[in-house]
């Protein structure tokens, strides 16, 4: 293999998580005949589209060394707020959607400001926002479901362009934008620099504070878009919609190789992480696996996937932590 300029450990390090996805894909394909149908693959893609959109924002935050656990509650807020404007005040869906994204972005920006200016750890700041968004969502909805959205709005969640569901197209656009932004723009490269070593990044002239404001704002804005897609899919706004959403997204992002410590992570890995989450959930339902067993398997796969990824990285290092290929 070395003759081609790479070795097995390097392949494992780079693509370990992909092998996990392929293995899972093969197992489910053999175990259930419906898994591999095009219709089911699009079904899974549509189901993970909200997670995919939000994962891009979360990836930005985590690469820059932060974390945002408020996105689940924010998604609920956007869901309820937009539905409330449309149903109760007859606001045009477009303006309601823009208003929801704008309010969410302001919240994200405030998160960034609190983290940078008041030096509050991101976990605490976003935990506070988690409860704030949740509280506002319940205050608006009073715990009730808001229904009666116009049929035109549903197109966003259940429409198709050719055979491809619209939410999937939106997700692909966001993933492509994320990949491009991180790899081809200097601001994207700064995210890695800030996450890798904040002090060094600051000394090299990067405006760390403004960059952090940007990542939290983008994360909130992307989550808001995910919330709008979710609202269109459900055709009803409920304050519980985003419950646990943050953990799904963080799991997918970590599964995809983005370091909790910041500074590393590729869009390719995150896409694999999202697909693992989606196919795992779908495959087990198709196999009619009990809910209890599903939870166990999800936990085990998470540990195995991340463990395999860590081990494969370790294999590629010598005792001093230097890449063997180097």
């Amino acid at each position: 293999m070395k003759g081609f300029g790479f070795n097995r450990s390097e392949i494992l390090r780079q693509y370990g998580i992909l092998f996990v996805l392929i293995a899972m894909f093969i197992i489910f394909s053999v175990a259930t005949p419906n898994f591999l149908k095009v219709e089911n693959l699009f079904n899974v893609a549509r189901q993970v589209s909200m997670m995919g959109i939000a994962a891009v924002g979360m990836m930005f935050v985590m690469i820059a060394g932060g974390i945002d656990i408020s996105i689940g509650s924010l998604l609920s807020f956007v869901n309820v707020f937009c539905a409330f404007l449309i149903v109760n005040f007859n606001v045009h869906p477009l303006w309601a959607s823009l208003a929801a994204v704008a309010v969410a972005s302001v919240g994200g920006f405030l998160n960034g400001v609190i983290v940078t200016q008041m030096k509050v750890p991101p976990l605490i700041s976003t935990l506070a926002f988690m409860t704030i968004w949740e509280g506002i969502a319940f205050l608006i909805s009073r715990g009730m479901t808001i229904f009666g959205l116009p049929d035109t709005f549903r197109t966003l969640g259940s429409g198709y362009v050719g055979p491809i569901p619209i939410p999937v197209i939106i997700m692909v656009v966001f993933l492509a934008f994320g990949g491009f932004f991180l790899n081809k723009t200097y601001i994207g490269r700064y995210f890695y620099a800030v996450g890798g070593n904040e002090e060094a990044a600051g000394l090299s002239g990067i405006h760390v504070r403004k960059l952090k404001w940007l990542v939290y704002t983008l994360c909130a804005a992307f989550t808001a878009v995910a919330g709008l897609v979710m609202l269109a899919r459900l055709n009803a706004g409920a304050a519980t919609t985003g419950k646990g959403f943050e953990f799904q997204v963080i799991t997918a992002v970590v599964l995809g190789g983005v370091s909790i410590a910041g500074g590393t992570g590729r869009m390719f890995g995150v896409i694999i992480g999202i697909l693992i989450m989606g196919f795992l959930s779908n495959g087990m339902v198709l196999l009619d696996v009990s809910e209890y067993v599903q939870r166990i398997i999800q936990g085990v796969v998470l540990v195995l996937a991340v463990g395999f990824d860590c081990l494969s990285k370790d294999i590629g290092m010598d005792k001093k932590g230097v890449l063997k290929s180097e």
Binding site: M230, N282, D288
Partner: peptide, 23 residues
Amino acid sequence: FVMTAESATIETGMTAAENFLQA
């Protein structure tokens, strides 16, 4: 009864029904 899923909310109900229809 060919399939069972845990669901009490609109979001989980929608996802479960979509998966049921695939199987």
